[in-house]
Nucleic acid binder design. Structure first.
Lengths: 230, 230
DNA sequence: GCTCGGTTATGATGATCATCATAGCGATCG
DNA sequence: CGATCGCTATGATGATCATCATAACCGAGC
């Protein structure tokens, strides 16, 4: 629960660009290592609703978000979608596939415009083999993601839709407001758009927030935290 | 979904003991490394319903299950419990906490009797710093756990109770039978005991399985897989 | 300008599932 | 041996939430 607020605090604003050497993964690298790495990177644009890769596609490597926002998600045959993680500048993704298998285990698409670097799998493997600190750093990151996933798993198994929505809202908020659509929030909270709208309207009537199109202003974050269950 | 059946196949039978050098983490170590590591290990008994550690407790280090079965779980204030992972001989746990923070992010308790080694945090850090291959290996393991967690997250968000129970049942089964109580299955599937019992009785009436106390024989695994949604 | 798609809403309806209650059964323990 | 506890079972009931339908609103694009 505390690491949620950590994520809130430490995630850089999605609108800001991050320098390569400040990205969560690469902080541990020396300037020389970084210099050798830089030419290997492929930069790709990130656009809202534009996929970076799809679940089942061949895994290219490790991604580092430079600017904008990206979400990882899974889609069912029925068309329902679950957002697994939402990432901001400096955060990495696709690490699972680079290590575990040949294919991406989830899809990724842009939420806010920006760009991302892609570090090819082979280069990553070389780097990992050459410097133990890098492996430990990636491990730290992936471990913290696993921890988050476990928390959400417990929440999905036990909490009501309002509780999950309140939590998703707090997670998405920056500076007292969350720039997300009801649909996006529903997919993060594992519910439907209609339920999300109804619940958020109730929050609004109770004075917990103020809603506009694609924007939710938190008026009583404390009460929302109570609803979220902690 | 395919890695689920992988887990089924590759997880050693909980009753069998595993040699230290065959544990998933330590396979990559040289005999010399292993010899240096061995005296650092503390062996602890694993007993059904006996906790190894609790969420929030100070993290000692990395655990390696030698024999028996262990589950990681989270409990709510309301008393409801979610099983996050179930582990067999040779598998590691507590890796998150050894890297991420000072406290365990979940609780662990025995399911089947056996024992586990505990590798102190400091020793692990030393090892990680000395040999890049070890870090990559832990990373591979943690990544695969994250992948599993993502799958379950999607399932919890989208699937019905019968679908989640069928999947939990398939995951728990070894050689066509699952030695679990209805309660344990419910906690793995994120539902209640009563619902688990009702659903499993329905499966039984439909000829998909045969139930006894603490034992479920799969009669039609194919049909169960269909119910599980894939 | 006018359609079209996405977002926000709200109602009606029904399925699903948690909760509470009760009970039989077997094992364990004093 | 009786009591107790955990597991399995089933019914009754109600809350929650998904689904389907409808509609207003707004911006983008033809």
């Amino acid at each position: 629960m505390t690491d949620r607020s950590d994520a809130e605090r430490t995630r850089p604003n999605a609108a800001n660009e991050i320098a390569l050497e400040r990205a969560e993964l690469l902080r541990v690298l020396s300037p020389e290592q970084l210099a050798r790495l830089r030419p290997q990177l492929r930069e790709r644009p990130v656009q809202p609703h534009r996929a970076l890769f799809f679940e089942g596609g061949e895994a290219e490597g490790l991604w580092i978000l430079r600017r904008g926002q990206v979400r990882l998600y899974k889609a069912s045959a029925s068309g329902r979608v679950t957002t697994l993680e939402t990432l901001g500048p400096g955060e990495i993704f696709g690490a699972i596939s680079a290590l575990e298998g040949e294919v991406y285990p989830a899809s990724a698409e842009g939420v806010l415009a920006g760009s991302a670097w892609c570090l090819p799998r082979s280069t990553l493997m070389q780097l990992l083999a050459s410097d133990p600190r890098l492996g430990v750093e990636v491990l730290r990151i992936v471990s913290s993601r696993l921890h988050q996933a476990h928390q959400r798993l417990h929440a999905f198994a036990q909490d009501s839709a309002p509780a999950r929505l309140a939590r998703a809202l707090l997670d998405a908020a920056q500076g007292g407001e969350a720039r997300v659509t009801r649909r996006a929030l529903a997919e993060s909270a594992g519910t439907t758009v209609e339920t999300a709208i109804r619940v958020l309207r109730r929050f609004e009537r109770e004075g917990l927030l103020h809603g506009q199109v694609g924007l939710l202003r938190l008026l009583d974050a404390e009460a929302l935290r109570r609803v979220a269950g902690g």
